[in-house]
Simulated assay, not measured.
Amino acid sequence: MSDLCGYCILNPPRLQDDLFEGLHFLPDPVVENGEYKAFADVHGTETDDTARPSARAQEPASERDKTLKKLLVATKVRNFAICRECGKWRVVYSPKKLSPAEGRSVMRVQEELVYACGNPLFHAGVYHNTIIVKEGINCNSLMESAYYAGKRMQFVDVCFHCWDTELAENEDLTHTKEGFGIVCPICQTCLEQGKPVKTRNALKVKKRN
């Protein structure tokens, strides 16, 4: 207990000193030889969050992603879902345009704060395999390029890195848009921080005679 901590002074621990000194914060996960160490082996030691599963920027495709890969394409984009933990906008895919009832079901998932990155949109039921999101992602994963493809749905432009709606505009970005089918938006802050402009589908430039 710190003598400088006002909260600790006003709310001193009720345990005996020897018991209080033996308490430890819950440790972060620690990987050794490709496997997570047991809780008993890391409790009471200094750890950091570098091995936290959700800190991995790129997750491998889940088995469901592989099974349903024909749905996870730009022409099947129907809506988006917002993660309740990180706030990122994740693409919702379906074979056909969502009916009013299906749209209400997706909206209900949003209202009840059910969806989180890496999970199915519907864990069971009739929509489990027909209205889906990509599951091989986590809260550190970037926005999906399919969000910006505009094949079937056009959404509000948000920054590819931080999903801010205040976006940068300059001559370099305009020139980049002339050379690619998809140029994901980027905000001024991320641009100034040196984050890259995400592009896809380079356009063929006709050679001048």
Rank of each mutant, 00 (worst) to 15 (best):
L15G: 01
A55E: 08
K66F: 00
V91I: 06
D17Q: 12
P60K: 02
D65G: 04
E35S: 13
W89M: 14
A55Q: 10
C83Q: 06
D41H: 03
Y36G: 11
S62I: 00
K76T: 01
D17V: 13
P53E: 09
T75M: 07
R64I: 01
D41E: 15
R64L: 09
S94G: 12
V77P: 01
R14P: 07
G87E: 10
C86F: 09
K97N: 14
R14K: 15
A101L: 10
G22R: 12
E85N: 12
T75C: 07
V73H: 11
N33Y: 08
P27C: 07
G103L: 07
S94Y: 04
K69F: 07
D17I: 11
E102C: 03
Q58E: 12
P29V: 09
H24D: 12
T75F: 03
K37D: 05
A55M: 13
K69P: 01
P53F: 06
H43L: 15
F25P: 11
V77D: 02
P12W: 05
N11Y: 11
R90Q: 04
T75I: 01
V73I: 11
G34A: 06
G22I: 00
K70Y: 07
E35M: 08
G87F: 03
H43K: 14
P12V: 11
A74Y: 02
T75E: 15
N11M: 11
L15H: 01
F25Q: 14
L19K: 05
Y93L: 03
V73P: 00
D41C: 03
E102F: 03
A55L: 07
L15R: 02
K69E: 15
K76M: 01
F80V: 08
V77C: 06
G22E: 13
R78D: 04
A51T: 05
H43Q: 11
P13N: 13
E32Y: 07
W89K: 15
A101G: 04
V31R: 13
P95S: 10
A40G: 03
H43F: 15
E35F: 08
G44E: 06
L26F: 11
G87P: 08
E85Y: 06
Q16Y: 09
R56K: 12
I82R: 10
E102M: 10
L72F: 05
R84V: 05
P53H: 09
E102N: 04
L19G: 00
R84W: 02
F20M: 08
V91E: 04
T47A: 11
H43S: 14
K96H: 14
R52P: 00
A57N: 10
P60V: 00
L23K: 12
D48V: 07
E21F: 06
D65F: 01
V31G: 00
E102W: 03
K96I: 03
G44V: 04
L71D: 05
H24A: 13
D18N: 13
A51Q: 07
P60G: 04
P13R: 12
D49W: 08
A81P: 00
T67K: 14
A40L: 05
E46L: 05
A61D: 12
A40Q: 13
V77F: 02
R64Y: 01
F39C: 02
E63P: 00
L15Q: 04
D28Y: 13
E46I: 02
R90W: 09
